[in-house]
């Protein structure tokens, strides 16, 4: 289908500029340049930047662009994705210097006239291209005991007031994508730090009045590498694709540690 036969209006100025670049490009689409930080351990000693031109619609996501590259240009491009709809938390990456989910970042929300830089999240060991080793991240997560601990076996559901539920509502939204933890400059230099995501998930249970192990978690986080490592840079709050007020949650845990109770 050629652009001339269908009279769709061009969606943006960029679309006009790149229409001549690809004869077979669907109307409304345009070409963007993705500069991706590649690292293939069998070939590369150091990560290198490689650029790809890819034809996209403004409403496409970065993940769609990555798919097009992998399916049509270079099958060796490696990245994680699972649900592709912002729920599984697999495709957090650093896009134009900011941690985001590739599946929630629309091309039109970036500046498509400039190259878009895509690299793996920082602070975790790089395995290949956009894939990092998430094990240190999940190890911190496991350490804060992210599960309900309540005594007794009730014969009905555990009741909770609306107010009590609201205390930890924000932190229930975490999808464990690591965008926050890998945006934290403290975590970049100190891999021992629990990191924002682990503290957020601790917060979710510390302030749950059905849970009986709040004190245990407060003791775990009352550590040199616990909440006190947080320097309130707010990178985590800016990075969270779920809009969790991460630094606020960390501050609440800090205050709970000082008070000695949730």
């Amino acid at each position: 289908m050629s652009a001339a036969t269908v009279a769709y209006p061009a969606e943006t100025d960029v679309a006009d500029a790149s229409a001549e670049a690809r004869e077979d490009a669907p109307p409304g689409s345009f070409t963007i340049t993705l500069i991706i930080r590649r690292f293939i351990p069998e070939i590369d000693e150091e990560p290198r930047w490689e650029d790809f031109d890819v034809n996209v619609f403004p409403t496409d996501r970065i993940l769609d662009a990555l798919h097009k590259i992998k399916w049509e240009q270079d099958g060796s491009l490696t990245f994680r994705r699972s649900c592709a709809h912002g729920i599984c938390g697999s495709d957090a990456m650093r896009i134009n210097g900011r941690n985001r989910l590739a599946c929630k970042t629309l091309i039109k929300d970036l500046d498509p006239s400039k190259p878009i830089y895509v690299e793996a999240i920082k602070g975790l060991p790089l395995e290949k291209d956009l894939v990092v080793d998430m094990e240190p991240f999940f190890e911190s997560y496991r350490q804060i005991q992210p599960f309900l601990q309540a005594s007794g076996t009730p014969d009905r559901e555990r009741h909770q007031t609306v107010e009590a539920r609201a205390r930890f509502d924000d932190t229930t939204k975490c999808i464990l994508c690591a965008a926050c933890t890998s945006s934290c400059p403290v975590f970049w230099t100190d891999g021992q730090y629990f990191g924002p995501a682990a503290i957020v998930n601790a917060h979710r249970f510390i302030f749950d009045d059905r849970d009986e192990a709040s004190q245990v978690r407060l003791d775990i986080l009352n550590d040199k590498e616990g909440v006190w490592r947080c320097r309130t840079t707010f990178n985590c709050s800016d990075a969270c694709p779920r809009g969790i007020e991460v630094t606020k949650a960390i501050a609440e845990v800090k205050q709970a540690v000082l008070r000695g109770r949730a």
Binding site: T232, F234, S237, E245, T247, K248, A251, K254, Q255
Partner: peptide
């Protein structure tokens, strides 16, 4: 500013 962030409820939201 950091003291307000650490010790008040409104600090983080208005940082």
């Amino acid at each position: 500013r950091i003291i307000l962030i650490d010790f008040t409820g409104f600090g983080t939201r208005h940082q």
